[in-house]
Amino acid sequence: MLRYLLRRLALSLPALLGLVLLTFVLSRVVPGDPAAALAGDAATPAQIAEIRAQYGLDRPLAEQALIHLKQVVQGDFGRSIFSGRPVAEEILQRLPATLELTFAALLLATLIGIPLGLIAAMNHNGLIDHLVRLMSVGGLAIASFWLAIMLQLVFSMELDILPLRGRLDVALGSPPRLTGFLMLDTLLAGRLDMFLSACRHLVLPAVTLALPGIATIARFTRSGVLETLQKDFVLYARAAGYGRVRLAAIYVLRNAVTVTVTQIGLLFGALISGAVAVEAVFDWPGLGTYAVQAILAADYKALLAVTLVVGVVYAVVNVLVDLAQALIDPRIAGAGR
């Protein structure tokens, strides 16, 4: 199992290397001169040339790419053209907020999506099944920024039971920053009131972000369960006298979710990109809002770093997904040997 895990990790390295180079090249072939942007509107051509030399923008592209790669490996993403602070620092500052949000959404999507899919499949063509199918189409069709605003209108403005924006009640102050994850930091600080406030702030953005995920996971679980129910071993288990509940909830579901789990990995990519819109609406100080700023400011250093960090997180999540799959299905780790 360990060897399987290491192999999966090793396999994601070339992909990440490719990502570094590809994003670099893309950032340089798109129109827009970073040196000009840096120098400002009133800069003379001489000033722009000076900045270009200072940032190494005048060297051949291949050489720049190599330098970029070397820096990235050392964890050096350069300084933000916009704020002048080290990009790595800024990203570390914001990454936990986004991870907290996306993981909460992923958890919600899984915990709601899988039972929903299972129940729908057990009621195949029944009322619940139709409702779930309707919902899973709707969940994908609804634009997340629209949903976000609707939820804000209902739960924050109208009912006033959930906070409108931010991660924490400003009045409560903030816990000492240890991990950057408020869920953890508030607990580590022993501040239950802050923890609850953080949870309440997380609800609306996480639900908004989770909805398409719930739809996807419910759909895949449903079809996985339906497919598994056709298998000979289910018929055999019924003949041998398995209990109904156990048959559905454990025996069938474990086979069915192998497909769902793959989807969860892919979904994570969608969640991170979805987080951009959701963070913007809820004023969530994460990577999404940072990326938006970077785009608007043509801050290519920051953009490269964000892309890469998202890529790394995505790769790690997918290794975890592979691991989960190998744990669910014993044939997987053995098969690729």
Partner: peptide, 24 residues
């Protein structure tokens, strides 16, 4: 007791064989 036709398809691949019988 029931002995099915296809031994390849009649056991659930993701559970230990022993556990499947112990559940019965």
């Amino acid at each position: 007791g029931f002995v099915p036709q296809d031994p390849y398809l009649s056991l659930n691949p993701v559970f230990r064989a022993g556990d499947q019988i112990l559940e019965i």
